[in-house]
């Protein structure tokens, strides 16, 4: 990855405090156009908190989040989605009693404008918008290989497929930056391999940028262009996967200090 690509997402001095606990402290991160950046770290390091601040679920105590140079700190989640950041969740959050297709169409919501009256009177623009929504959703659902589940309720779909469904919904938001929270957790080896190829395709063919939290080191080392390591709310290391792999601070964070 070319180091001079412009930053898509930038956090500056980001701080999030819960009660007396600093979950994230003075956290700086830069995600560059077209890269896969993995955020790793031990449990409780604050990775998901960073995601929640970036996607507007939490408001930070301090610091800024910049998306394509625009300050989006403290914006509501739907505003951030509309700007082009879509996400998935660590513990899959689908709409369980809606069909897979309806789940994915939901991602298109911010790309439409029809309101109550145009929906009741089925105006021309509303019908055009609906068919555009469903075409897009169909493409997203095909893309993750879930076509045969499209009319199944999301809660009846196998776990591994639910992960892909959630990614399809995020893609339907038409994002520039995809933020994935442990996409491979709960997947078997074959599914994980498929996921890695899929994410690489997204980077190559769709010019997306991906920020992910990941615990599976095969995924991290296999597809990341860069890796950032967190411990206790702070960034302790950042660099190419092979550099991170050898960084003594990272080894210490994961395995503890060698007694001597």
């Amino acid at each position: 990855m070319n180091g001079s690509s412009p930053a898509v997402l930038e956090t500056r001095n980001l701080t999030k405090i819960f009660g007396g606990l600093t979950a994230v402290g003075r956290f700086d991160l830069e995600v560059r156009q077209g890269e896969i950046l993995s955020l790793i770290g031990p449990n409780g390091a604050g990775k998901t908190t960073v995601f929640n601040v970036v996607t507007g679920i939490y408001r930070p105590e301090e610091g800024q989040v910049l998306f394509r140079g625009e300050d989006i700190t403290g914006w509501k989640p739907h505003q951030i989605v509309k700007r082009g950041v879509a996400r998935t969740f660590q513990n899959i959050r689908l709409f369980p009693n809606m069909t897979c297709l309806e789940n994915v169409v939901a991602g298109q919501h911010s790309r439409g404008a029809s309101g109550v009256w145009s929906s009741i009177f089925r105006t021309r623009s509303q019908r055009v918008e609906e068919s555009r929504f469903f075409e897009k959703a169909d493409r997203c659902i095909d893309r993750v290989g879930l076509s045969r589940f499209r009319n199944e309720l999301a809660k009846n779909v196998p776990y591994g497929r639910q992960r892909m469904l959630e990614i399809a919904r995020a893609l339907a938001c038409e994002p520039a930056l995809l933020v994935l929270d442990e996409p491979s957790s709960g997947l078997n080896a074959v599914e994980t391999e498929e996921l890695m190829r899929f994410l690489e395709d997204l980077i190559r063919e769709d010019a997306l940028t991906i920020l992910l939290i990941e615990h599976d080191m095969n995924v991290v080392m296999g597809i990341s262009h860069r890796v950032a390591v967190m411990e206790e709310g702070r960034k302790i290391s950042e660099g190419r996967p092979e550099e991170i792999y050898r960084d003594p601070r990272v080894i210490e964070a994961y395995l503890g200090k060698e007694e001597n």
Partner: peptide, 21 residues
């Protein structure tokens, strides 16, 4: 419609609805 689906999404999972736009 877009409205009815948005309502149902909120009923199913408010956080996911917000994060879907």
């Amino acid at each position: 419609s877009r409205i009815g689906r948005a309502w149902n999404c909120i009923r199913e999972d408010e956080v996911a609805a917000g994060s879907s736009g």
